[in-house]
Amino acid sequence: MSINPLVSIKDLKIEVRVTRAKRLSIVDSASFEIESGKIIGLIGESGSGKTMLCRSLVGTLDRRGAYIAAGQLIFDGIDLIAAKQSVWNEIRGKRIGYVPQSALAGPNPVMTIGAQLAEAILQDENFPKSDVEKRSLELLNIVQIRRPETVLKQYQHELSGGMKQRVMIACAIAQQPELIVADEPTTGLDVTVQAEIMELLKQIRKDFNTSIILVSHDLPLINEICDDIVVMHAGTTVEKIPSKLIKTSKHPYTIALYNSRIDLVEPKGQLKTINGQPPSVGNWPAGCRFSERCDFVKDKCRVKQDLPLIEIGSNHQTSCLRYDEIAR
């Protein structure tokens, strides 16, 4: 653990209001840290709470009726949970950029790309209006959009999926944020476009020393470009592991995810699937939430208990009770 991480998330618990009295927790005990200049991959199945965690970092949870119920969320020394709207206004979009999940619907359909970029640039009130166009072109050049002058005058429906995603990234980096939260930025895009977007994120990290949280359910992708991987299952972080150590994972869920890669088997060979379905929100099993689907399960895993991440190596933490017995 580093002494001064850029972001520190500890035992974060996010709940939604279902009715006046009923609360459902969608993220329970998420813990990890992000150091500056690192790319962190956040991986897990649909519904594991990845997107909610991202939203907590940009302070837009309340728009989904959710709120932080417990835990710590600290960004560069600022407590984001207690942060007032005025504090958020200085952080959101300026120091933390957000690339949303549905890139294809990302840009505002009734604004030109130019108007939208101008909005992102003018979050800084002191920015001279006369320079907006110059800065817009500069941003579009950073994200490698061809014919930027034309694109400025276009609307989102005139652009391809990859270009829309590039525009969203351009908006996110307009204020040179210290952290970019990219929520499944390439889901639904072609492999070739995906490879280009990933190169672009790496380049941005290199040029501006930006930290990036990259959310995806694509393990090979995450493994290739991230420094560390945080694995989520059913609202909890179950493992944090450096990418290069992924083969020595000490959590059965990570191992199962890794083994379900189709590029590991021969054509038409037997695929290793993960047993069952992810548990649904509110119906989480007691004890380890992966216990129902786990091949390594023992009775002690099913006992109701907290399963914190245990430090088992440099930068490597797991929540599995039987981690020392796992060998592959």
Partner: peptide
Amino acid sequence: TSAIDQSAQAQLLGLFNDLI
């Protein structure tokens, strides 16, 4: 398979394999 996640994708492909 492009709208579903990795483990669900493995299940669906296994299914296609049986159909083949």
